[in-house]
Design a protein around this nucleic acid. Structure first.
Lengths: 263, 263
DNA sequence: CTATTGTGTTCAGGTACGTGAACGTAGGTC
DNA sequence: GACCTACGTTCACGTACCTGAACACAATAG
């Protein structure tokens, strides 16, 4: 009976391979803690993850002893610990795309003086991998590691535009979550926008994830970041600017600069 | 026989508690991958961690299936995956000190136009938790999550200065690693510096971790970041500037501003 | 004061995980 | 060609982990 959840997961993913239960659960715990807005208690976590309290207890104690999880001063609420920070930093430091595109991002940031991002598609989300700050003081707070729905960002749309209808339908959630009044939540409207992106070669997000922010992005060809065999790009770079500084002429110049940068 | 390593670890840490083996190993793997300069193979990892290849195999497959670990295109070298990034970002977003001190960092960055850091002591290392960029283009590359030996940074010395002789000796490695020609590697010299820091109320690092960079830091009292019961501070804030812009008068002004900011 | 509901914790037992040795394969080296 | 070493992978066995139920304790409600 206790083997059922593992078998079920394996069946769901289609993979005929048995994950190590405790390792799997360790990741479940870490991801659940990362996704929690408020720090949960042991019991809450156990219910949410469908793990017996006693089993979770051992895992949490192990994570706590290693500094990956910490408890509140009350000893009753669990959150991520300091060690969890290290792997993220290490990932960014060793990622090929981040390393190879660093000078490109620097050059774009210096040229336009606006915020520059490097993002990667992960499922239906875009993860920010690198950032160069605008010279203007609009703090976006360490966005590295932050995730946003792909359909609501220029980075995401530039990457989604490469996919065919079928894969797009598989990937995107329904309904498409709305972040601002400008977010494209209608699949047909999004499809039309993606077609326009394919034609133009670059994507634009018009206040679709943050009010007042317009963003221009292009996909980075896979061979450009050391993955010659790969057909589709997984990375994209973007420049964001407030509507107050936006103009069609500037948008054209930015798009041309981005396309030249990834060529 | 196979239970020995766990028993040994428990005995070493003094804790009379049995960690969950697979969970412990999961963290071992993630930390080893984070610490690797080059991506290791399964066999290399197994040797380094003292884990049988076959056991490590299962753990790695599990981590890989969840996107925490990825393999090279050759399928033979393992590195951290995209999901590893999420927990680090989540930690920073939910940390009390980062949240509470954000406006303080903003104000200092705006006032001096130099790089501002928030760091925390973890063992003998300092971890960077937040950063505000200098307006001057000296890219330090997303230092968040990065670690440096505490004795070689202003942040670290500001925090080490609170500890008594005994705890200091327990904490610091011997010999003290050298990062630049200015690093204090002599324990007595470091002790003298820490005494001076206690007297002055703030710490200065004179090119001790990076040539050409001087840094001023003060510890943030624990009650200031929502930990009223705690006697020692674990966090500190700093301002870094290149020697070319340094002067004793500016250093005094920075120190006064930092002390006022944490009061 | 008692009941209830929530914490975290412990423990014996049945089970599913870790192990070591074997395998298949690829890329060298001589 | 044959050998060697490295890679990842598989499998049956025995062990040590996961489980459910019971525990101790605290806080709140009635």
């Amino acid at each position: 009976m206790s083997t059922e959840p593992q078998a079920r997961r394996a069946a769901e993913t289609g993979a005929s391979f048995q994950p190590v239960k405790s390792a799997d659960r360790t990741l479940d715990v870490l991801e659940a803690l990362a996704a929690s807005v408020q720090r949960p208690t042991l019991g809450e976590l156990a219910r949410r993850l469908g793990i017996p309290k006693s089993s979770l207890h051992g895992v949490l104690r192990t994570l706590q002893a290693r500094g990956w999880v910490r408890v509140d001063e009350t000893g009753t609420r669990y959150g991520l610990g300091l060690r969890a920070l290290r792997v993220g930093a290490a990932f960014v430091e060793t990622d090929d795309a981040v390393t190879l595109l660093a000078p490109v991002l620097d050059e774009l940031a210096a040229r336009f003086g606006e915020t520059v991002h490097l993002g990667r598609l992960d499922g239906a989300e875009v993860v920010y991998l690198a950032k160069r700050e605008s010279v203007h003081p609009l703090r976006l707070f360490s966005a590295i590691g932050r995730r946003l729905p792909a359909h609501a960002t220029a980075l995401g749309k530039a990457l989604l535009a490469q996919l065919d209808e079928e894969r797009l339908a598989d990937l995107l959630p329904t309904p498409l979550p709305r972040l601002t009044s400008h977010t494209l939540t209608d699949l047909e409207a999004l499809r039309a926008d993606l077609a326009a992106i394919r034609a133009a070669g670059y994507a634009v997000d018009r206040e679709e994830n943050s009010e007042g922010i317009i963003c221009v992005a292009v996909a980075v060809p896979a061979h450009r970041v050391g993955h010659p065999g790969q057909r589709e790009a997984s990375d994209a770079i973007s420049i964001s600017l407030p509507v107050s500084r936006h103009s069609d002429a500037l948008q054209e110049r930015i798009a041309a600069a981005l396309l030249a940068a990834v060529a």
